[in-house]
Each structure stands twice: as C-alpha cells, then as structure tokens.
Amino acid sequence: MVWNVLFGERSTTKIAAIFDTEQGAATAAAAIHSSAGLQAAQIRLVKPYEKDYAKKIEPETQGIVRTALRAHLVLGAAGAVVGFFGWGLLYLAGIIAVTATPLGSLGVFIFFGAIAGMLLGGLVTARPDHQLVIQRVQTATQEGKWTLLIHPRTPRQCDQVMAALSGVEAEVTRSV
C-alpha cells in the first residue's frame, strides 16, 4: 500500500481484547498464535492493575521515530509540490498577485505547502487511532481486567486475528 512508505513501524495496527479472567486471555492468545501464525513478540498480556504496560502497547519506539521522520519528510515534500502546482495554476490563470511577483509568490506557496504537509505528517505520527486502544487498555487495567494486545504486521494477520477473536467472549478494540 502507498501509505506504508510513511510508517517506520513493522506493526501499524493494534488490537486489544479485554477479558475478565486470565484463563480466557491465555486461551485466546494460544488460539491466535496458532491460527494467525503470529510470533510470540506480537502478542502481549497486560495484567490487572499493571503499571508499566505502555511498552506493551507501543513496543517499537525506534519505529515511531522512523515514522516521524518519514511522515514529515514525505508529506512535507508532497505539500511543497502541491504548493508549486497551486502557484502554477494561479500563474496560468493570470492572477495579478501571483504574476506581479512570481518568485516571491512561488516561495510563499511552496513554503506554506511544505508546512501543511509537515503538519499532516505530525498527525500521522501522533496516530490518533491508537488513542482509542490505549484508553481502553488503561480503563480495563484499572478495572482489574486482563488485556491481550496483538500487533499484526500484515492485513492478512489482522483478518486472522479478528476472525479468531470473533469466537471468544471478549471486548475487542482495534486501530486502523
């Protein structure tokens, strides 16, 4: 997929399944491990009232840094290109503010296009879709429930995990 060039993480989707018992979570983990072909590192268990579970939710800290760099660079460059083409359209349309000062207005269009692209890169880096999963895990942990965190690396693995979780009694939350 074209959007994957923006991400430096191997697993961009997060799936959380909330269980009332450790047995339910362990059974689901075993089923997911065998049916979806995930590695053990892709499946994490968060215990009730556990304090240091953040690393289990976001285990790829280096990948997040790579995502930040890639997203800002790629989208900043794309924004500059869009700014250039926007300037070109206005120049060809004969807009006086653009034609009177072509180089100055070109610089402004490229600059603001790059800034808009980098702002979008910041949004991609922040991954607001992950916040839903993070908040649900935090609530479940505080309520004394067990959480199974799954980090599928491919769309196929994601589909297999969701299929495996459809047959168990769990509240499932996932990111994009």
Rank of each mutant, 00 (worst) to 15 (best):
M1G: 15
V5Q: 02
L6S: 01
G8S: 00
E9R: 05
T12V: 11
T13D: 12
A17Y: 04
I18D: 03
D20C: 09
E22A: 10
Q23P: 09
G24Y: 02
A28G: 09
A29F: 07
A29V: 00
I32M: 06
S34W: 08
S35E: 11
Q39H: 13
A40Y: 10
A40R: 14
Q42E: 11
R44F: 10
D52T: 07
A54Q: 11
K55D: 14
E58K: 11
T61N: 12
Q62D: 15
G63P: 08
H72F: 12
H72A: 08
L75M: 05
A77M: 09
A78C: 04
A78F: 02
A78S: 04
G79H: 03
V82F: 11
G88N: 14
L90A: 10
Y91L: 09
L92R: 14
A93Y: 10
A93C: 05
A93S: 09
T101E: 10
G104R: 09
G104T: 10
S105K: 00
L106K: 01
F109H: 08
V124Q: 02
A126V: 03
H130L: 01
Q131I: 13
V133Q: 04
T139D: 13
A140S: 03
E143G: 04
E143V: 11
E143Y: 03
G144H: 07
W146H: 04
L148Q: 05
I150G: 06
P152H: 06
R153L: 08
V161I: 08
A163Q: 09
T173E: 15
S175F: 00
V176Q: 14
